[in-house]
Computed example of a mutant assay.
Amino acid sequence: MNATNHQFRLAARPVGMPKREDWKYTSEPVPEPRDGELLVKVLYLSLDPAMRGWMNEGKSYIAPVNLGEVMRAGAAGRVVSSKHPGFAVGDYVIGHFGVQEYALSDGKGVAKVDPKVAPLPVYLGTLGMPGMTAYFGLLDIGKPNPGDTVVVSGAAGAVGTVVGQIAKLKGCRVVGIAGGADKCRYLVEELGFDAAIDYKSEDVKKALKAHCPKGVNVYFDNVGGDILDAVLTQLAMHARIIICGAISQYNATGPMKGPSNYMSLLVNRASMTGMVVFDYAARYGEAAREMAGWMAAGKLKSREDIVQGLETFPDTLLKLFKGENTGKLVLQVAAE
């Protein structure tokens, strides 16, 4: 194939908010697959808060991206050449293909998807890693009961929107915490949340007390920091907290802010549990089938915030940390 593959490679470990100079925009010839390999043309990239953590050195749930490597990212694409028995030219697939136009793969971690069932970007959001995170984090760790009050932070993001909707399907009262009047309106008017708190203009602690008079039974935390501390003051007895992420802390240049109200866990006999979606990989199919059924029945809505152009990657990624996206942030690399 006489084509060029453009890529973003990690050039430096960011300090604070990532900047364009932390990556190097490179190009190389598109490779040909060898026996047992397939070549994927990347159509859409999944942009996720976790990518910020992957850029750091140090122990984590997954090895960091090494300097000089193509930046890790989930993606959806089309097979354009294959010497792999499990994949044919024309198959649509998802996998960790990286921030580039073409990806060579041995097929591990690659799954076929059907764009007739759902548009490709949905497989990066509600039917992808964010949706799996919401499903297993809420249902397996949060264990919501009908009538419970469920609070979710980062509620207008890719994970939070799904958490809230699943909680409603399970008969819970749902309160979302998000930044800005437009996002809060979207949560209540379009997704059916019972209430939304605008952390940019409201006192979160006072608003939680008003909207959760019997306390918080389940808290799905995507942001950490001050909001986690505020929720800790409003826990119901035997509350369950799911620690999914801490986006408010990812770009901190000083010590990470931990919860100062953690004694509330003892007083309320509550639990706080970390959640990594990769632990549930063997059950992804189960979650995808149920959520696809909810979507087909109109019970679960999906929203993608799609930005065009691989070259915009550094700036587009920062939308996550500036709170500028609603729903799943996706970068379109090429036309389908």
Rank of each mutant, 00 (worst) to 15 (best):
G131W: 10
K319G: 04
P49I: 07
K168C: 02
V65C: 12
E324N: 12
I166W: 08
G107A: 12
L45P: 00
T149I: 01
K301V: 14
G74A: 09
C212L: 00
A103P: 01
D203A: 07
V30S: 09
M291F: 06
R185D: 14
A287M: 04
D203P: 00
P314A: 07
K206S: 15
D35H: 10
G176C: 07
D182M: 09
V188T: 15
D221A: 01
A195Y: 06
L320R: 03
V93P: 00
S248I: 04
L266N: 11
P31K: 13
G86K: 08
M272H: 01
C212I: 00
V93Y: 08
K116Y: 09
V42T: 14
H238N: 13
V163Q: 03
K41E: 15
A76Y: 04
G109H: 11
K214W: 05
G16D: 12
V216E: 03
G285R: 03
G323D: 11
G176V: 03
G90L: 04
V277H: 07
K322Y: 13
G131E: 10
G16V: 07
P314Q: 13
D106W: 07
G109Q: 11
G98K: 02
S82A: 02
A252L: 10
K19D: 12
P213V: 01
G298A: 01
S60Y: 12
N5G: 04
S264A: 15
L232C: 10
Y44Q: 06
C212V: 01
S105F: 07
N217H: 14
L331E: 09
G180C: 03
G74K: 02
K301C: 05
H238V: 10
T161L: 05
L208Y: 06
F193K: 07
G98R: 02
V70H: 09
M256T: 15
G125W: 05
H6A: 13
K83Y: 08
A181T: 13
A181R: 13
L187I: 11
C212E: 01
K143V: 10
V80D: 05
Y250R: 02
G98D: 10
E202C: 00
Y92T: 15
T4W: 12
A239S: 11
R289W: 09
V79N: 09
A281T: 12
G258N: 11
F313D: 04
G147K: 01
G298C: 00
I306F: 10
A63C: 07
F87R: 00
V162R: 01
D226F: 05
E311V: 13
V70M: 04
L124A: 07
E290I: 01
V174K: 01
E28A: 15
Y284C: 01
L191T: 08
G258V: 06
V93D: 08
R269K: 13
Y135S: 01
R289H: 13
A239W: 03
